[in-house]
Design a protein around this nucleic acid. Sequence first.
DNA 1: TTATCATTTTCGCAAATGTCTAAATGAGCC
DNA 2: GGCTCATTTAGACATTTGCGAAAATGATAA
Lengths: 127, 127
Amino acid sequence: MDTSAKVIVSPVCNITCFEQEKVARIKAELAKEEQRLPQLAELYKLLGNVTRLKILLALAQGELCVCDVAHVLGLTVAATSHQLKLLRDQRWLAMRNDGKMVYYRVHSEGLLKALKGDLCLLEERLA
Amino acid sequence: MDTSAKVIVSPVCNITCFEQEKVARIKAELAKEEQRLPQLAELYKLLGNVTRLKILLALAQGELCVCDVAHVLGLTVAATSHQLKLLRDQRWLAMRNDGKMVYYRVHSEGLLKALKGDLCLLEERLA
DNA sequence: TTATCATTTTCGCAAATGTCTAAATGAGCC
DNA sequence: GGCTCATTTAGACATTTGCGAAAATGATAA
């Protein structure tokens, strides 16, 4: 594999490309992940919101009904229900009906573990 | 700690609260994380974007100049530079100047490790 | 200095997000 | 049946995000 720097002006996109072969190789590598990356981004989008992180941490302590979650968050029940649904749609939460009440709980212990790991990552960076 | 269900109508927010003490306890728990949660959400927001995930995976193979990253992504150099800056601002990427060129590289091995771990989490869920 | 080139920044816009209010479901109770 | 209450859904609205085009930087080279 030739990794020496070469200056090549692409006739296609008209942007100067310095390491055409390397770029091609990396594009090929990324192509392998093409299916997983959107899923991974979807997970991270879901986690990239303080409200939803709070929901996960709250439910880490056990199941709660929607209106209690709303109390914990300090949001309307409607907004809370909406966020719970997003987490449930991707199967990170499960729900249980009991009469009029709906109880939510964490469906994936692995997710909670990942959260803790990523918190540690932040701690490390501070050092 | 009393965890038995009680129906209490809050005079403050006027939403029925079923387990007031439990809610109070969980709110107290979350309060401890109040500083870290926004940072964690910020990290996840950053990762919740296929373009930025591709950048991280591309640079996992070694440093690249901005225009080569743009080629890998199939985006304009301006858009690429913008995304690189976001990752650099939070110190997940580092850069190096060489004449007119700017080379970016991953600054945190821990981040790449976390990415792989979270990919595994997705695999598990499929099973 | 002037020209050139890689990169960054600014601006504008279309799409997505998060919350609210209000209306709609759905289950229990009289 | 009709009423109440927990939850969900629909609609509206402000904010954020990701991109491209064009202008601004900053460094090399002639």
